[in-house]
């Protein structure tokens, strides 16, 4: 054992101190976030099962809905239903995909890793912001897989590639706002397992009670009222418009409004929950 030897004396890197002494700002804070985001990416890549919810799961949903319900829902034209379904699936999948984030954060806290981060002179928000940013990679993968698989099944965009990219960018941007709900639940839930339970309760009504799977006009009036304010409906409407053509404006505006609202409400709540976490 070399444990009993003293620390090498030539180490004279002085303990880092901030010149301004106050909260880390600007480039320093950004660097901390990137270092932590890299950690999250390494962790995700090393546990491939973490990708199931953004790869196999949406593909399974796509297959089930297109081939099991597709014929009945569309009244025969499976291809027509696929055109309708796939843009909608993006909204549902990013909402479901956000669940893992809160779960992982809670697991990190349970393990004590975040105690170490909290004892370092970095911004308290850095670990949370980093986790959200690292989730970007998962959502990107989700988009590529879903659209790629849809293409194999026969889906074709009716607009241009630029609109497709805009649609995917919008979905990912929405995901990065929506996932703060998951972060917040992760800060509040008692275990990482209960994060999943709580988020499912929230995400399932939001994703099915939307225009994702069937036309809103087939639903009872009270449900239509819910579907019309549902942020997922607005996202899906905007994505459909961008991929298949048709009006986009109002849905896009509503989607942006919802994104802003999600950030304004859930980022401070999540940060407060995190700061209070004993």
């Amino acid at each position: 054992m070399t444990l009993t030897t003293t620390a090498p004396a030539e180490l004279s890197v002085s303990a880092p101190t901030t010149a301004e002494g106050d909260r880390p700002t600007g480039p320093r804070a950004l660097r901390h976030v990137l270092v932590l985001a890299r950690r999250n990416l390494i962790k995700t890549i090393r546990t491939p099962e973490q990708f199931i919810d953004v790869t196999l799961q949406p593909v399974t949903f796509l297959l089930l809905f297109a081939y099991v319900f597709g014929g009945a829902i569309s009244g025969g034209s499976r291809h027509q239903y696929l055109e309708f379904l796939l843009p909608g699936m993006l909204g549902q999948s990013v909402a479901l995909g956000s669940i893992a984030l809160g779960q992982n954060l809670k697991a990190d806290i349970e393990k004590g890793v975040f105690d170490r981060f909290r004892s370092l002179p970095i911004a308290r928000s850095a670990p949370l912001v980093a986790a959200v940013i690292a989730d970007f990679a998962r959502y990107l993968l989700l988009c590529v897989i879903l659209v790629g698989f849809g293409y194999v099944m026969g889906f074709r965009i009716a607009t241009d590639p630029l609109s497709l990219i805009a649609a995917l960018a919008l979905s990912i941007a929405f995901a990065l706002c929506f996932c703060w709900i998951s972060v917040f639940v992760g800060m509040k839930a008692r275990t990482s397992g209960s994060v999943q339970g709580i988020m499912f309760l929230l995400v399932l009504p939001l994703s099915f009670g939307s225009s994702t799977f069937v036309e809103t006009s087939t639903m009872p009036g009270w449900l239509q009222a819910f579907v019309k304010v549902n942020p997922i409906s607005h996202l899906v409407g905007a994505v459909r418009g961008l991929m298949l053509g048709g009006p986009v404006g109002s849905n896009l505006a509503w989607t942006f409004a919802w994104m802003a609202a999600l950030l304004v409400v859930f980022v401070p709540l999540a940060l407060r929950g995190y700061a209070r976490h004993a």
């Binding site: 901030t18 390494i42 962790k43 393990k111 004590g112 890793v113 105690d115 170490r116 004892s119």
Partner: peptide, 17 residues
């Protein structure tokens, strides 16, 4: 925080790193 080191009751290293 600039002057402390903390080693918790449960080893808080990152398993996947």
């Amino acid at each position: 925080r600039e002057h402390i080191g903390l080693t918790g009751q449960y080893a808080s290293v990152d398993d996947d790193l």
